[in-house]
């Protein structure tokens, strides 16, 4: 039941975001942009700071628009930098927007069953492929 609800919800906002992106030829901030931070010729701590600011921008945007990505008990986004690095090191994940990558990492951290996370991720990838 929970899985079905999750899929329906995901389908709905993917349709909405799909319409938005189609109408504006919009490209979300995704793994390609994340990897570009690593490609910069600046010190490693600066890259980490830029990644941290990026994650804070996503979390701030999601929190103030009504749905925080990270759970209440998660004190810091620092731990998610490594998770994003790992996620986007897989080329198959590069086109997934940072918002969804962070959501997936949060789901995993919350202990959501791996099968459910896979379904969520597959739905995003399928939509992006179309």
């Amino acid at each position: 039941m929970q899985k079905t609800i999750l899929l329906i919800i995901l389908s709905c906002f993917l349709v909405l975001t799909g319409i938005y992106t189609a109408s504006a030829a919009y490209k979300f901030f995704n793994g390609e942009d994340w990897i570009k931070i690593d490609e910069k010729t600046c010190p490693a701590d600066l890259k980490i700071q830029m990644k941290l600011l990026s994650l804070k921008a996503v979390e701030g945007g999601s929190m103030f628009s009504g749905t925080p990505i990270l759970a209440q008990n998660e004190q810091s986004v620092n731990a998610y930098i490594a998770a994003m690095d790992n996620f986007y090191s897989n080329e198959a994940n590069r086109l997934i927007p940072l918002y969804f990558a962070l959501k997936i990492a949060s789901m995993e951290k919350q202990g959501i069953p791996a099968a459910q996370v896979r379904v969520y991720k597959a739905a995003i990838q399928k939509k992006l492929a179309n």
Partner: peptide, 21 residues
């Protein structure tokens, strides 16, 4: 470029949440 990306990330999160800023 980086500042613009932060604006973009904030806006994208609100769009995905269905309440565009």
């Amino acid at each position: 470029i980086f500042k613009t990306q932060l604006l973009k990330l904030s806006l994208e999160a609100s769009i995905i949440n269905g309440r565009p800023l």
